[in-house]
Design a protein around this nucleic acid. Structure first.
Lengths: 355, 355
DNA sequence: AGTTTAAGTGTAAGCGCTTTCATTTTTTAT
DNA sequence: ATAAAAAATGAAAGCGCTTACACTTAAACT
C-alpha cells in the first residue's frame, strides 16, 4: 500500500510520515552506481568480495540518495534479526536497569539491540511476552522470569530456543543459567559478623518460598556452623524482602526477648527497615548493634551509617548474559562467561566489633 | 539459506536452532484449513471479514501445526513494526527505569514493543542510535537525548520522523516534547521554605549550563522575589548534580561566611551530599537547618531524616510519551497527554520552621 | 423471482533484502 | 602467451506476510 513512488502517496500533503516519504531501496542505489543489487548488499554487509573501486561507487550512490538500510527486510531474508529479547519483571527500581545496562554495553559493540518486555512476575504474562518476542524472531532471549515453571523453560530450551535464564538456576539447563551464589553471599555476611567478634547474631530472612531467601539463610547457617556457633530459630525472623518487614522483624525479635549484638538481613531494604526500628529502640549503630544487608543497592551508601552489605554483581550478570549470547548464538569467540558469580563483602559503617 | 524443508537443514543433528527447525507458514496453515493464505492473514490480524466457521477452521489448523506468526515478515509487508525506539542516556539508576516503566505499561496494552538503546550523553552515539532505530523501522521514537542539538531534532521532525522528546523542551517542536516544569519545581521548593518561615535560604544549584539546572534556579529566585526576599549570589553555589558537589557546596558556603537556616538543592543527590556536610559541621536537621531536594529519587525516603523534596513525575512522563505515540502514530483515540507536567512537594522530615 | 447490496474469499503482486549459483573478469602460475 | 585459480559480479529465486482487486456467495430489498 505504501510505495516508493511519490505518486502513490496518500494523506494530505505535508502529512507524509517518514516511512512513507523516504524509501530509497537497494535497487535504486544499484542503478545509480551501475552495479547489481547483490553487490550493493555486499558492500552494506561487508560480505563476499567487492572491488575497492565498486565499493566506493556504491557508497557514493548511497550517500547521494540518502539510502537507509531496511533492517526488517534484511531480517526476513537472512533469518537473523540481531535482536535480543529481554524479559524482566519490572522496569522501575535500580536492579533491572543495572542488569540491562550490563547487557547493553556488551551488546552495543556487537551492534545487537534489545527488545524489552516485562513479565510482572505473572506466569501468564511472562509466557505471553516470551511468545511475542519469539514471534518477533529475536535471535536469543534473556529471561529474568519468576512465575513460569522450570519445566516450561526447560522445554523451550529443548525446542531449540536460544535463551539464557538470569538470576535463577535450573539444574537441567544449567548451561543456560547465569546466577549468583546466594549461599556464599549469606555465608559471607554472617562470617563477617563472626569474624569481627559477634556470636549473638539475629537473622532477618527473605521469603523462604523463594530460592534466594532460602539460600541466603542456608549460607548464614553454614557460617555459624563453621565457626561453632549454634543456630537457633529464636534469632531468626522470616520477612518478605520489603523494608517494612525489616522493621517488624526487629520488633518481633525484641518482643520475643532475643538477645543479639548484630543482625544480618537477607536484603538491603529489610536492613534499612531494621535500622529504623533499632533507632526507635535507641540502639546505636554500630556501637550497640551491627547491621549487614545484602544486594548493595544504590541507597545502601546513603543510609547513615552507611550499610555494610554483600554486593550483588547485577551488572556483571547482565554482561555475562550478553557474552553467552554473543558466543553461543552469534559465534563470536573470545566472549567468556561464568555461570555462577560470586558475591563479595562491601564494608561500610554499619558493622563493627561488639563493645 | 535457512529453509522450511528439513532437508536443507545444516549443522550437526541435535543442534538445530529454534528458527531453523520450526517455521510453519501461513501457507501451510491455509492448505490445512482449505482456505487461501489471505484468509489466514485476515483471521490472524482480525481484519476484513471472515465467516465464523472459517475462522474456527483456521484457528484449528494453526493450533495443530503450532503456527507462530512471523512479525518480521508482517512488518515488511505492512510497513509497520509496532515497535517504538527508545533512546535514554543510561540504563542504570532508577530514573530511566521508572520512565520506561511508565511507557511500557501504556504500550503493553496496545501490544507495542520497545527497542531500547543508550546514548551516553554523547552526540555521536545518540545519532548513531537514532539511526539504527530508524533502520529497524521503528514506528516512532521516544528520545531522552542530551548531547544532540535542538536543530538536529527539529530536522528529524521536519523529515517526518515521528518522535517525542522527553525531559527537554524545544519551542519549535513543542508539540513533540513532554517535559517537567522545572521553574515551577524550583519555585515550589523555595516557596515551601519561605512559607514555613525561612528567609535565609542557601541554594545549591545544578550545572547551570544545563537547562534543568538553570530553570530550577530561576524558580528559586522567583519564589524569593514573590515573597520579597532579596536574592544574593553569596548564598548560591553551583554544583554539578552529583552528591559530592552538595558536600562541597555546604563547605564553600560556610567558608565564605554565608548565614542560612535552610538550603535548597537542585537535586536529591546534592541534598544528600549537603546533609553529610551539615552533619559533619554538627548542624542538626531540621532543627538547625532545613534541607530540601529535587527529584524524589528512591533513596530520598531512606535518608535520615527523610528528605523533603520535589517530586519529578518521571513515570508519568514515560506514560505521556506512550500516549502521544498511541494517539499520534497509531491513531488510537482517547489517549490524552500533556506537554508540560507539574512537579509537587513531598514533605518529609528534613524541613521545619526555623527555631 | 429478480435485483441490489453486502459479506466472504481467492489471486497475485509486491514489501526490500540476502544468497546461491553461474558467469565474467582479473590475477597468478606455467 | 596460455591455462588454471581466484576474485568480482549479476541473475534470480526466495524470505513469509499483507492487501488491492476481482470474484463468488449470501442476505436484503422491491
Amino acid at each position: 500500500m505504501i510505495s516508493t513512488t511519490l505518486l502513490k502517496l496518500h494523506g494530505k500533503p505535508g502529512e507524509k510520515t517518514y516511512s512513507e516519504v523516504t524509501m530509497v531501496t537497494i535497487k535504486q542505489v544499484s542503478e545509480k552506481a551501475g552495479v547489481s543489487s547483490a553487490t550493493v548488499s555486499r558492500v552494506i554487509n561487508d560480505t563476499g568480495t567487492v572491488k575497492q573501486k565498486t565499493r566506493e561507487l556504491v557508497m557514493q550512490a548511497m550517500a547521494e540518495l540518502g539510502y537507509r538500510h531496511n533492517v526488517v527486510a534484511a531480517s526476513l531474508a537472512s533469518n537473523k534479526t540481531h535482536t535480543i529479547g529481554y524479559v524482566v519483571p519490572e522496569l522501575h527500581g535500580s536492579f533491572f536497569g543495572a542488569m540491562m545496562g550490563g547487557t547493553e554495553q556488551a551488546l552495543r559493540q556487537a551492534k545487537k539491540h534489545m527488545l524489552i518486555a516485562t513479565g510482572h512476575s505473572d506466569a501468564q504474562i511472562e509466557k505471553e511476552q516470551i511468545d511475542a518476542l519469539l514471534s518477533r524472531r529475536c535471535d536469543a532471549l534473556i529471561l529474568h522470569v519468576e512465575a513460569v515453571s522450570d519445566e516450561y523453560l526447560v522445554s523451550l530450551v529443548h525446542q531449540g530456543v536460544d535463551l539464557v535464564v538470569v538470576n535463577r538456576f535450573i539444574e537441567e539447563i544449567g548451561d543456560n543459567c547465569i546466577s549468583l551464589d546466594n549461599v556464599k553471599g549469606g555465608y559471607l555476611a554472617t562470617r563477617h559478623l563472626l569474624d569481627i567478634g559477634h556470636t549473638q547474631i539475629a537473622y532477618i530472612a527473605g521469603s523462604l518460598f523463594k530460592a534466594d531467601g532460602k539460600k541466603r539463610l542456608t549460607g548464614h547457617q553454614q557460617a555459624l556452623a563453621d565457626m561453632g556457633v549454634e543456630y537457633t530459630d529464636n534469632l531468626t525472623y522470616e520477612g518478605n524482602f520489603q523494608a517494612k518487614s525489616g522493621t517488624e522483624g526487629i520488633r518481633a525479635l525484641v518482643a520475643r526477648g532475643a538477645k543479639f549484638t548484630a543482625v544480618a538481613c537477607a536484603n538491603d531494604e529489610m536492613a534499612s527497615g531494621a535500622m529504623i526500628a533499632l533507632r526507635e529502640l535507641g540502639r546505636r549503630m554500630p556501637e550497640d548493634v551491627s547491621v549487614i544487608g545484602f544486594d548493595n543497592v544504590d541507597f545502601a551508601s546513603y543510609l547513615s551509617p552507611g550499610l555494610t552489605t554483600i554486593d550483588y554483581p547485577v551488572q556483571k550478570i547482565g554482561s555475562m548474559a550478553a557474552h553467552w549470547v554473543l558466543e553461543r548464538v552469534y559465534g563470536h569467540s573470545h566472549h567468556e562467561y561464568q555461570h555462577i558469580l560470586s558475591p563479595r563483602l562491601i564494608l561500610r559503617g554499619s558493622t563493627s566489633s561488639p563493645e
